[in-house]
Design a protein around this nucleic acid. Structure first.
Lengths: 222, 222
DNA sequence: CAAACACAGATTGTTAACAATCTGATGTCG
DNA sequence: CGACATCAGATTGTTAACAATCTGTGTTTG
């Protein structure tokens, strides 16, 4: 039985990606241990991993909190994506099989459905997962690993600093990226993703906010 | 408490960078706990972080081992560096202060001393740290974070796959990179680091399958 | 009335003991 | 002789209890 440490990690990661865990939310060990039916020791390992990725802040004797990226960190994350994602797309344009393209099509279709059905949380998660999927299919484990980290951080960045009107990561953008990949037009794909990232960056307005959430609701059993 | 989790993590990380912890080395929890005078719980958190970075393999009920990157992972790590380091250097060319350049000078000088004095382990660590320092001074926390991860993995890659004659990461290479940065010649800096990485890649001797690689390495050495 | 203090409850940090699992060594059987 | 079974020691995984620390509340005091 594969250690559910990975399981718990993924549950928390997904919750961040779905924006059900908001920046600044306290993550009490005992509470998480109950929710996931594991002991505190495991929770601590998960939190150690998340802290190392800067997805949570670990304050000594105070506990774990979902990270609230500073303005500088936010810029850094978006610039890092501007570095990595073009490379991901160039690789993908070269290597994507028709099966890969079908997977991507399917994913974008799922995004559209979630949007249409008003399943906002799922739509947000799928939107982040789209970029992770691009990196996975590009076939470089190191880049894919970094991409997953940056995706989660991007979600937090958007939550902390986004202007209320701006909506980042619409399925339209993803479709234009996917179209360029399908056309094997690397430059167009890179341009599309850079535009996408510029849009996110432009929607950011660096102010201070934070909030809490009902953990039981966030991790409602499935 | 002198030894924080971060402390222990850094100690292990440095040991990997110094190539005193070789790929495949077992890392028993109890033993590490004694060495660093902390309890096993902390060691487990450190190992969880290291596993998440793929610097150690964590096998259930068997324990932790220093990772032995496969040929594919090795390629991925080097390609990821080819993606990230050019961006780091372009940033650095734009932003490096004279103080930064002095730090880099000092670092390369230290590398030369270690080389000259035959302090091989320290020379290797400093060589890796040079690239980390470049990323730190480039001023992007996200890229610097990824760079530290890739540096350690690169050390493991070299140890697992390098041809015995080839010596990667000589101070000469670092000096030519540094010279280009000082000249504010971004293209030259990028070219220098790419050459550097190509050299490392060229020195690697991949065998087809993981288990075969083991046997070949064993029998090639006598 | 405000500030400082003190205490109670809750949360994190630490430790040790116990259970489960693996390694490898020995012994038995075909 | 070799393959398999078994057992002891060691290592990892789990649990619970205890200690240290923080937060918030209520009281005291200037």
């Amino acid at each position: 039985m594969p250690t559910d440490v990975d399981d718990v990690y993924t549950r928390v990661y997904d919750a961040v990606l779905e924006q059900r865990l908001l920046p600044g939310t306290k993550l009490p060990e005992e509470r998480l241990a109950e929710i996931f039916s594991v002991n505190r020791a495991r929770i601590r390992q998960v939190l150690a991993r998340l802290q190392h990725e800067r997805i949570v802040d670990l304050v000594p004797n105070r506990g774990a909190f979902v990270a609230r990226p500073t303005a500088e960190e936010s810029d850094d994350v978006l610039e890092a994506r501007r570095v990595i994602e073009p490379a991901v797309l160039r690789r993908l344009v070269e290597r994507a099989t028709t099966t890969d393209l079908d997977h991507l099509d399917e994913h974008v279709a799922a995004e559209r459905r979630s949007h249409h059905d008003g399943l906002e949380a799922e739509a947000i998660r799928l939107s982040g997962e789209f970029h992770n999927l691009l990196a996975d299919l590009a076939g470089n484990t190191a880049l894919a690993h970094t991409m997953r980290e940056l995706s989660a951080l991007t979600c937090l960045v958007i939550l902390v600093h986004h202007a209320p009107t701006a909506s980042a990561c619409r399925p339209d953008d993803h479709e234009s990226i996917l179209r360029a990949v399908r056309d094997r037009d690397a430059d167009a794909a890179v341009a599309a993703v850079l535009t996408h990232l510029d849009l996110v960056g432009a929607s950011l307005t660096f102010t201070e906010t934070g909030s809490d959430a009902d953990l039981d609701a966030v991790f409602a059993s499935r």
